[in-house]
Structures are given as structure tokens and as C-alpha cells.
Amino acid sequence: MDNKNEINKSTDLVEIVGIQLKEAGMPVKGRIDVDDVYCKGCELCASVCPQKVIHMAPDRITAKGFHPAELMKEGCTGCGVCAVMCPEAAITVYRETQAARAAAGA
């Protein structure tokens, strides 16, 4: 496996997902939950996040001795690229839909 090709593929995926979200009029509000049991701190999620809002938690260490991923600031769009890239399936992505936003405001 060639890491350079993998990075290019993931960059292409980020661009494709970003375009699809913009064209579909998707909301810009999302969040992630990272299961510390599975996260091995590989940083793949942080490297592909188009919003650059994921980092490894500097103040937490998992039972396996890794710094787990976490959101470091607002701005997650819920695009799901991080979850697709996670080799351990440790990330669950939640996206607020426009219908839910409208219902909350009604």
C-alpha cells in the first residue's frame, strides 16, 4: 500500500464529499463521538477533516495508552469523512438536519 496514493485518494474523497454537501444544501452543523475503546490515536481522521476541527486529546489517554481523537472547536459539518477513514470504526458522526432545525425553531 502506497501512503502517498492513499492520501491522494482521501483528499479526493474530502473534495467530493464537500461538493456533494454544498450541492445538496446540507447543514453545516454536526458532531462526532469517538469510542475510546477502539481509537488508537492514528490521526487519520484529523488529517482528512475538511474543517480541521479534529485533533488528538492532549489531556486524555485511553486504557491502551493512546491519545484519542476529539473535536477541538466548533465547525464540524457532519460530513463523515473522518468516520470513513477510521480503520477501527471508532467514530460515529451526527448531523443536524434542516428538518430538525426547522422543527426546533417552530
Rank of each mutant, 00 (worst) to 15 (best):
residue 2 D to H: 00
residue 2 D to C: 05
residue 4 K to T: 13
residue 5 N to L: 09
residue 5 N to P: 01
residue 6 E to Y: 02
residue 6 E to G: 04
residue 7 I to K: 10
residue 7 I to H: 06
residue 7 I to L: 06
residue 8 N to D: 14
residue 10 S to R: 08
residue 13 L to Y: 01
residue 14 V to N: 00
residue 15 E to K: 02
residue 16 I to D: 04
residue 16 I to W: 06
residue 18 G to S: 08
residue 18 G to K: 04
residue 19 I to D: 08
residue 21 L to K: 01
residue 22 K to N: 03
residue 23 E to I: 11
residue 23 E to G: 03
residue 23 E to V: 14
residue 24 A to V: 00
residue 25 G to P: 03
residue 26 M to P: 00
residue 26 M to A: 13
residue 27 P to V: 03
residue 27 P to C: 04
residue 27 P to S: 07
residue 28 V to C: 01
residue 29 K to H: 04
residue 29 K to A: 13
residue 29 K to R: 12
residue 30 G to Y: 02
residue 30 G to C: 01
residue 31 R to V: 00
residue 32 I to Y: 06
residue 32 I to G: 07
residue 32 I to A: 05
residue 33 D to I: 14
residue 33 D to L: 11
residue 34 V to Y: 03
residue 34 V to I: 15
residue 35 D to Y: 11
residue 36 D to A: 14
residue 37 V to P: 05
residue 38 Y to M: 12
residue 39 C to E: 09
residue 39 C to T: 05
residue 39 C to K: 05
residue 40 K to N: 15
residue 40 K to F: 15
residue 43 E to A: 15
residue 44 L to S: 09
residue 45 C to N: 03
residue 46 A to F: 08
residue 47 S to D: 13
residue 47 S to I: 00
residue 48 V to R: 02
residue 48 V to Q: 11
residue 48 V to G: 05
residue 49 C to T: 05
residue 50 P to I: 01
residue 51 Q to P: 00
residue 51 Q to T: 09
residue 53 V to C: 04
residue 54 I to C: 03
residue 55 H to V: 14
residue 55 H to S: 14
residue 56 M to I: 07
residue 58 P to R: 14
residue 58 P to L: 06
residue 59 D to Q: 08
residue 60 R to P: 00
residue 64 K to I: 10
residue 65 G to M: 13
residue 67 H to Q: 11
residue 67 H to N: 15
residue 68 P to L: 13
residue 69 A to Q: 12
residue 71 L to Y: 09
residue 71 L to E: 11
residue 72 M to L: 07
residue 72 M to S: 09
residue 73 K to I: 00
residue 73 K to M: 11
residue 74 E to D: 14
residue 74 E to C: 12
residue 74 E to I: 09
residue 76 C to W: 06
residue 77 T to P: 02
residue 77 T to W: 03
residue 79 C to W: 00
residue 82 C to W: 05
residue 82 C to K: 04
residue 82 C to G: 06
residue 82 C to S: 07
residue 83 A to G: 04
residue 84 V to N: 03
residue 85 M to K: 12
residue 86 C to A: 07
residue 89 A to H: 12
residue 89 A to S: 10
residue 91 I to M: 13
residue 91 I to R: 09
residue 91 I to L: 10
residue 91 I to V: 14
residue 93 V to Y: 07
residue 95 R to I: 12
residue 97 T to Y: 13
residue 97 T to D: 02
residue 97 T to A: 05
residue 97 T to C: 09
residue 98 Q to R: 12
residue 99 A to R: 07
residue 100 A to C: 03
residue 102 A to T: 01
residue 103 A to K: 15
residue 103 A to R: 13
residue 104 A to C: 01
residue 104 A to E: 10
residue 104 A to R: 13
residue 105 G to I: 03
residue 105 G to N: 10
